[in-house]
Design a protein around this nucleic acid. Structure first.
Lengths: 336, 336
DNA sequence: TTGAAAGCGCTAACAT
DNA sequence: ATGTTAGCGCTTTCAA
């Protein structure tokens, strides 16, 4: 086994293969890339030589030459949120079949970190980016300026700047709230995410739509369990505490449910709850949790399809796809 | 705004910057990379020119020249498993502070997909790989042969082939089983993952250790909710069904718990349960779930540290770090 | 301190 | 059908 002093074997290059097979580097390149005009006998010889030397084409050199990469970046705001990991699977599955790899970047709901990842994506010259933008403009602008195709998921971009795949959160929140009211709850409250995060704002708006002239009971907090817990405690401490809650995110829902239990309130019976995102444990709690299920996988898949189309043809007009969420009624939103 | 016909602006290269600043490309390179020997005045001029042109260094070209990248690949078997996403955060946080980006690849417990991702990693010449290998050898061999630093997490590699960060699953499984026995359960069973998946095997072995000469009630199934459900149904259908279950993975636990409920069995009281991995919803179910908590974040962080060290010095001897899991007793493993 | 020039490994004109 | 060669954008000797 050939090796250098630090124990690593020297990597074979295309010219090693060429020499070994007694042909030119161009022929090696053509043979290995399946260009039809190559003599089958030579192809075989080249293949054999490549095999023997353990040759792997250097993607860096190839990409530099081709001025493109077969890599997509997926920038999401929370790797630990099942909603986003489901999106990731959708993106990955579609990308995979088209021969693209997916780089997952965790922006952590942090504009600075997002910016840094976009920077890396730009430097590495990824073919395109799927992103759940922390705001409507800041980071993505860099991409647009460079002409890197972008598709936004979950949260919108400034109008007309690129493709987006969204869910009609507002309508879904409205429907969920109406369901709670129809189920007999009289003081429906809402726990949502930070102002400026579009999904949080939309879900709150939908809640208000349904509430009409009824009294609002709403709290904002970070999209995490701790945020949900704090918001719930505040709401419960009010004069006329809510007897039902619309919760804008599944991580918050954990905090909400814990708080309800700590306060000795029975789910459904004392306080009805509907939460966004269908989580695997929804049916394990008692009573099971009513949820607004978003088609996360399909969001990712569609985003990847749009991105691939735009990579193939940069002149495509920006599209906005809106998918529907589905209310799944379970025990937590019924008194019975 | 300068632009080509397809609407994308031409990207500025180092020579554009050089021309703009009236210096050579070498000076631009030195100035931008902070080489100390450059006249501060020139540095300023170069910076200004780069800024004005919106110059971003082409990472591809840089990496090709430097023969290295600041990218780590993290190949995990399930992006939707909170255990792995927690590892991902650990890896990411450490990598980030060292200036590395992390590419997350989802092998989906599929050796072929794993192989393909390793191939991409090799072609893109990533600086190193953190992987939860589907088996002890196959894919990783390619990396080792090329001298790419590798650290295995969660599952071991063939002895002496690289660094690894593991958890003492066997001891933890044993302790969990002993806990169940001490709690008064008489027919403790085990639901574990597929044969050949090391963690599944280890946890089963630990279960057997604790059981001693008692009768075994064990089932293997895929590491998913459906697997857990099927295994539980089978065990329950047996002659002397288990009155307690050690479950090797949190996804399986969902299926186990659903099945128990469907069968009308009360958690804790009728059937005690301990599951691997502390999930956020563990305290939401009734009674709350007793778990074996693995230090997932720390596994990822330590793996990244080892990888970075090995990248810096390829001659380091392989190390094997074993972290401890912690049994968190809650209601599901008590009759009371 | 700065510039000129070579070259990383590959692909794609162009030539044969 | 195959070979020769230029050059992708950058860093880094080597000279000046």
């Amino acid at each position: 086994m050939s090796g250098t002093e630090d124990g690593r074997s020297r990597v074979a290059t295309i010219s090693d293969v060429a020499r070994h097979a007694g042909v030119s580097t161009a022929t090696v390149s053509r043979a290995l890339n399946g260009v039809s005009t190559v003599d089958p006998a030579l192809v075989a010889r080249v293949r054999a030589a490549a095999e023997e030397l353990g040759y792997r084409p250097n993607g860096l050199a190839r990409n530099l030459r081709r001025q493109e990469t077969a890599v997509l970046a997926l920038v999401i705001s929370d790797v630990e949120n099942p909603f986003f990991t489901a999106i990731a699977r959708g993106v990955e599955d579609v990308a995979q079949t088209a021969g693209y790899s997916v780089v997952l970047c965790n922006s952590d709901e942090n504009a600075e970190k997002e910016r840094r990842y976009i920077d890396v994506a730009l430097q590495e010259r990824v073919a395109g980016v799927v992103i759940s933008p922390t705001d409507e403009w800041a980071g993505v602008e860099m991409l647009l300026r460079r002409g890197t195709p972008v598709v936004a998921v979950d949260r919108p971009l400034r109008a007309g700047t690129g493709d987006q795949v969204l869910v009609d959160s507002r309508a879904a929140a409205r429907a969920a709230t109406e369901h709670l009211i129809a189920a007999g709850y009289r003081r429906v409250g809402c726990v949502t995410g930070p102002a400026g995060v579009r999904t949080a704002d939309d879900r709150l708006a939908g809640y208000r739509d349904a509430l009409g002239r009824r009294k609002r009971r709403e709290r904002r907090a970070e999209y995490r369990a701790a945020g949900g817990a704090a918001a719930t405690r505040e709401l419960l401490a009010g004069a006329e505490p809510p007897d039902a809650l619309l919760v804008a995110n599944s991580a918050m829902a954990i905090g909400v449910l814990e708080t309800l239990r700590a306060e000795g309130l029975r789910l459904g019976r004392d306080v009805g709850v509907v939460a966004f995102d269908d989580v695997p444990w929804a049916t394990l709690i008692d009573p099971p949790l009513t949820v607004v299920a978003q088609p996360a996988y399909e969001i990712g898949a569609e985003a990847a399809r749009l991105l691939l189309a735009r990579i193939a043809d940069g002149t495509l007009p920006p599209t906005a796809t809106t998918l529907e969420a589905q209310l799944i009624e379970r025990g937590s939103s019924h008194r019975a």
